[in-house]
Structures are given as structure tokens and as C-alpha cells.
């Protein structure tokens, strides 16, 4: 059952809050787009207005100027009830309701389709069970949501969005409180859903390393300008570096990772091969040694299969683990 997807287009959009009839503009001149089957990650530093943009996209608040076109239709002209059939929303908010089972929670997704009292038809129940199955919570269907772990609960919230059966899903930092493996699982799941069901998925996140590996497109908001493109475009055009005002944070264009620029304690040359070499390099890098190939070096480390050798002039020391090697270097 492949749904016809909806695309999203933001043109010269200005968003913000209205307090006491004064418009506080938070973001302006936004121009982003997303196509069906695409998973888009919205990134930007804390407080720049990611949530405001997503809340506006979800129809929770009005926008000041510009356009939001959902499948060609201006968002502000769509009725609240109609929006519920087009866009579903998942936030980072922790839902704890006593006596509510996973099934009950996911069944909320059918809300826009049920009658005045909210009665679930056989078809609705099937949709709910299917959504629960999709996120891998089959065994938890009758468990109370307050008994779930954070990762399980977030998956249940995603299942709720799935049951809502909308072409667009917006998620505001869905992985904020999850551990690394759960973060990967959620991203992977969302990517799968985007492809399989031809959904347009927009997710805001701070987990850049994961986003770079999983999403189709980045929407980047920075103080100096906004950019969109494939994660790889972002890396090659050094858009990501613009996210940080802190000069000590750099972006490793080779590894595709952020790193903290440190002051080096000494220059070290490392010899060896395979995994042992890679992780020895990482350990030395982490503890603040500059790795050099041929240039002036203060000492040499030879990474063997099970032993690590420290070499400086005639001084030789052998260690059985990286930990012991680092301990020795620390004491010197």
C-alpha cells in the first residue's frame, strides 16, 4: 500500500512568537524543501528556533510571512482537523498517563478518523496493531506506558504517528533522551518508514553523527545563513562548521565527525597495523598527543598485536594494554 507522498516547500518563511500583540521574529527568509520518501534532519544550535519552525510546520502556531506549501496547498488555509490527517507530530515530551496501555496510546493515532465518541472500528484496530508491529513493540501491546523504558516509549509515540497514517511526520528531537543504540534504532526505523511508505519525515536533532549517516537531506540553520542539501554536500561545503561559534570545535572532514581542538602535549610517531594501530591512534589523540608521520617526534609507540612498546632513544618499555601505556605516558 504505497501512499502518494506529499512534498513540503518553505518559501521566504518568517516564524516566531506573538506576545502582547508584538511579533517576535525568530527565523526569517527560510527556504527549504522536502520530497516524498525523504527523511530530512533539521539541525542548528540550541535556541536558534528549530522547535519554533517545527511547531509552525505542524500547524501549532501561525507564521508571519512567506509560504508553507504542503503538496501545493498553503498550510494556513488548511483546517485543524484536516491537518491532523496530513501531518503527525512527535515531540520529546515524556507522556506518563496512569493506566494507559501501549495499544491505547497508539490508538490515539486513529483519532482524526473515529466517530464523535472515538470508537475504534475493526479497520482502526488493525491499523493500530500494524503500527505497533512496525516499531517492534508487539510484545508490549498491553503493557502500561509508565512501565516502558524511554526508548520503548519513544517508539510507541512513533507508532502513534504511524497509526495516524499521515503523509508527513514531524518529530522534534525524538532521540534527545535516548542512549546511543536506541538513537540509531529510531533513526533507522524512520528512514525505513520514509522509504517503505513514501512518507516525508522531518526530524530535528543534535545527533549529527547519526544524522549524517542516516538521513537523505539536511536543513541547516545557522546565525549566518541557512543551507539545505545531502549530508555529504554539507560536509564538502563546510556548512556544518558554521553551526558553532566556538573556535575550539572543528569538523573532521575525513571522519565526518566533530572534534574538540586540543593543545597537544607532544608529537608522537606510531607504528603498527590493523585495528590495533587504529585504536592506538585514537587513544593517543584522545589524550592529547599530536600524531606525526615523519616529522620531528618526541617519542615512538609501536602498536603490536597484544603488546605496546614505548620507544625514546634507548629507552624501551613494554605494556600489555593501551590503558597501561597511557598511564605510563601520563606519569612521565
Amino acid at each position: 500500500m504505497n501512499e502518494t507522498g506529499f512534498d513540503i516547500e518553505l518559501k521566504n518563511l518568517s516564524v516566531g512568537y506573538e506576545r502582547n500583540r508584538i511579533q517576535l521574529e525568530i527565523l526569517k527568509g527560510i527556504g527549504f524543501s522536502a520530497s516524498p520518501g525523504e527523511m530530512v534532519a533539521l539541525i542548528g544550535s540550541n535556541g536558534i528556533g528549530k522547535s519554533t519552525l517545527l511547531r509552525t510546520l505542524a500547524g501549532f502556531q501561525e507564521y508571519f510571512s512567506g509560504n508553507i506549501k504542503i503538496n501545493g496547498q498553503e498550510l494556513s488555509t488548511i483546517d485543524t482537523k484536516e491537518i491532523a490527517r496530513v501531518i503527525s507530530f512527535v515531540s520529546t515530551e515524556n507522556i506518563s498517563v496512569a493506566n494507559m496501555t501501549v495499544f491505547d496510546l497508539v490508538a490515539f493515532g486513529r483519532f482524526p478518523y473515529t466517530n464523535w465518541i472515538g470508537r475504534l472500528t475493526y479497520h482502526d484496530k488493525q491499523k493500530v496493531s500494524m503500527a505497533i508491529h512496525k516499531v517492534g513493540l508487539d510484545k508490549f501491546e498491553n503493557r502500561y506506558i509508565i512501565q516502558l523504558s524511554d526508548g520503548e516509549r519513544q517508539r510507541a509515540m512513533i507508532a502513534r504517528a504511524l497509526a495516524q497514517d499521515t503523509p508527513v511526520i514531524i518529530l522534534d528531537e525524538p532521540t534527545a533522551f535516548l542512549d546511543v543504540s536506541n538513537k540509531y534504532e529510531i533513526f533507522h526505523l524512520l528512514q525505513l518508514l520514509a522509504k517503505e511508505k513514501n512518507k516525508t519525515i522531518i526530524v530535528s536533532t543534535h545527533d549529527l553523527n547519526i544524522a549524517l549517516r542516516e538521513v537523505d537531506k539536511l536543513w541547516i540553520i545557522t546565525e549566518t545563513g541557512n543551507y539545505q542539501g545531502a549530508p555529504e554536500d554539507a560536509v564538502l561545503n563546510s556548512w556544518l562548521e558554521k553551526l558553532f561559534k566556538n573556535e575550539n570545535i572543528g569538523f573532521d572532514i575525513q571522519e565526518g565527525e566533530y572534534f574538540f581542538k586540543k593543545k597537544f602535549k607532544a608529537n608522537v610517531k606510531v607504528e603498527g597495523e590493523g585495528l590495533s594501530l587504529i585504536w592506538t591512534l585514537r587513544a593517543l589523540n584522545r589524550t592529547g598527543y599530536k600524531l606525526v608521520m615523519k616529522a620531528e617526534h618526541d617519542f615512538t609507540v609501536i602498536a603490536g598485536d597484544k603488546t605496546w612498546t614505548f620507544q625514546k632513544g634507548n629507552n624501551h618499555e613494554e605494556f600489555n594494554s593501551i590503558y597501561e601505556l597511557l598511564l605510563f605516558l601520563e606519569r612521565k
Binding site: G59, T80, K81, I95, F108, F111, T114, I117, G118
Partner: peptide, 22 residues
Amino acid sequence: FKIKDLNAFLLGENYARSLGVK
């Protein structure tokens, strides 16, 4: 008549709105 909306309010205002509650 408000039973359905009351259920939605359990999830908080944001979710209630995203489910189409005015």
C-alpha cells in the same frame, strides 16, 4: 460530547492539537 477531546487532552495540548482538537 467532549469524551473524545478529554482523551486527547491526556497527551497534552500539543498532541491534542496535532490530533485535530480545536
